[in-house]
Design a protein around this nucleic acid. Structure first.
Length: 485
RNA sequence: AGCGAGGUAGGGUAGCCUGGAGUGCCCGCCGGGCUCAUAACCCGGAGAUCGGUGGUUCAAAUCCACCCCUCGCUACCA
């Protein structure tokens, strides 16, 4: 049995989740569920990032404490994941003690390697925003976020000697090309590393809502550095779980935080003496109705609302069907309705419905030689999901759904009777049963509703995807999907 | 500015790495078939100077150069 450890980033809890958070988490959930049905031992982690100045600020605005504030937002995340049927095995919060402990241990190990030194961080600082701004971010010499004046300040800080890891990082990328995924991202990273790798400031003195720096408690640890360690603290250092699952197989992240995961994180791991994860996969972004999603436009898509309106299965399906992981895509309710109506209702839902309708008119035993399975390539679908091509996998599955519909038209079972009819029915029912297994990771509720109507009591497992010579008598239930507008 | 991604019928995509008749898919449109089914399903058709220019080649959507348009990243805002 293979193990499979997959993570989402931990989300910064200054606001409720939007489509971007939902996308990463749903995609990770699909991968986790797929690996479960193929029989792998899966650990699927998500969680929340709860420290930093932005949080204290948000708490102040809501006239509450940071702790109370994050608790309330974290609840929204947990509720959302429940609605989206996220099957995470654990939920890590950076405010948890287990995390603080692991972080302290991790930092000490980095220090033992001689990679941490005390220095001075100098940069442009925007006082009202309480944030550092890089030279390249400046807009006309002013703060790019609020447009106000910035000033040059110096701050005592501890640094991580990341610059020393350049060669080892390049060696890592060379020996494991899939570490930087999808492949077109690797050039981006390589170019930037070749342009020079700087040491990283890893502590702050001005941020009080954070984890104390174990070597000097006047400082707190820079949130990003601390946040990355969640992937280890969730397993627990020195635990059985840790030896079973570390290193992670896939860190699924958004492209905007690729640098942290593809460069800073492996350098930190090397310094602390841990094995390096197998893959960092950077997925793309959604635009909303053709425009960028932004707070000022107020066009953020609420995953809870979408799930309520269209069912979480349909929402999940759309997220993975509309664009390949890694690419950018556009979200619109119009496009979602179109996919629901044609692919989910007309093609797949109707296939089940018409199949069962025909079957209910036949009262003999349903058995027959498999023939429709010739058009199905399970190992190809499996290969695609395992290389994170969930888009291609769904294409392949839908090709088979279409084949099954074609088969009905060709065989015209309403003109058949006796053994001939039995054989066609057996093929169709088996096709539906296999489809119900294949869509399970994408649409768990629909999958089990299908299985129920097909009188199939087994748990979905990939090894049950070969056609059988006999099918149980199905029982018509409610429509899987109804159409919109 | 640097780096990266994308520009293929009315819309959306795949193909590009490993050149070989514009080849495929989805939506929409037109015509036909079927009647089991959610006005569903199946078959056929119309529709494209494959962003532009130049080059390599017997042959370019595919390789090379330059240009135009859109989007993203540029390290301490997660």
């Amino acid at each position: 049995m293979q193990k499979f450890y997959i993570t989402t980033p931990i989300y910064y809890v200054n606001d409720k989740p939007h489509i971007g958070h939902a996308y990463t988490t749903v995609a990770a959930d699909v991968l986790a569920r797929w690996h479960r049905i193929r029989g792998d031992e899966v650990f699927f982690l998500t969680g929340t990032d709860e420290h930093g100045e932005k949080i204290s600020e948000a708490a102040r605005k809501n006239s509450t404490t940071p702790k109370e504030f994050v608790d309330s937002v974290v609840k929204k995340y947990i509720d959302t994941w429940k609605i989206l049927q996220i099957s995470n095995d654990d939920f890590i919060r950076t405010s948890q003690e287990r995390h603080e402990k692991a972080v302290a241990e991790f930092i000490k190990r980095m220090d033992k390697s001689g990679d941490i030194y005390k220095g001075e961080y100098e940069g442009w600082y925007c006082t009202p925003d309480e944030t550092f701004v890089t030279e390249t971010q400046l807009k006309d010499g002013k703060c790019p976020f609020c447009g106000r004046e910035v000033r040059r300040i110096k701050e005592e800080s501890y640094f991580f000697r990341m610059s020393g890891y350049r060669d080892r990082l390049l060696e890592l990328y060379k020996s494991n090309p899939s570490f930087l995924s999808p492949d077109f991202r690797s050039e981006e990273i390589l170019n930037r590393i070749n342009a020079g790798l700087k040491d990283l400031s890893i502590t702050r003195t001005a941020v009080s809502w954070g984890i104390p720096f174990p070597l000097d408690t006047k400082h707190t640890i820079y949130v990003w550095v601390e946040a990355l360690i969640n992937y280890i603290s969730a397993l627990g250092l020195g635990t059985e779980k840790f030896s079973a699952f570390w290193p992670a197989d896939v860190h699924l992240v958004g492209k905007e935080i690729n640098w942290f995961h593809s460069v800073i994180w492996p350098a930190m791991l090397m310094s602390a003496g841990f094995d390096i994860p197998d893959m960092v996969f950077a997925h793309g972004w959604w635009t909303i109705e053709g425009t960028k999603m932004s707070k000022s436009l107020g066009n953020a898509v609420d995953p809870v609302e979408m799930s309520r309106k269209y069912s979480s299965d349909a929402f999940r399906y759309f997220l993975l069907r509309e664009m390949p992981l890694g690419q950018d895509g556009d979200f619109s309710e119009r496009a979602m309705k179109a996919r629901i109506n044609s692919e989910l209702a007309s093609e797949m839902g109707n296939l089940l419905h018409r199949t069962i309708s025909i079957a209910e008119k036949y009262d003999g035993k349903i058995r027959g030689r498999p023939e429709l399975d010739k058009t199905l390539n399970i190992s190809e679908i499996d290969r695609k999901v395992c290389t994170l091509d969930t888009f291609g996998a769904l294409e392949e599955i839908w090709r088979f759904v279409k084949e099954a519909n074609k088969y009905v038209n060709q065989k015209e079972p309403w003109h058949l009777e006796g053994e001939e009819l039995s054989e066609v029915l057996c093929n169709l029912l088996e096709a539906c049963r296999v489809i119900s297994i294949l869509i399970y990771p994408f649409m768990p509720s629909t999958s089990s509703e299908m299985a129920k109507q097909l009188s199939c009591t087994e748990k979905p497992e990939l090894k049950n995807c070969s056609f059988r010579n006999e099918a149980p008598r199905p029982k018509k239930g409610s429509l899987l999907f109804k159409k919109y507008e």
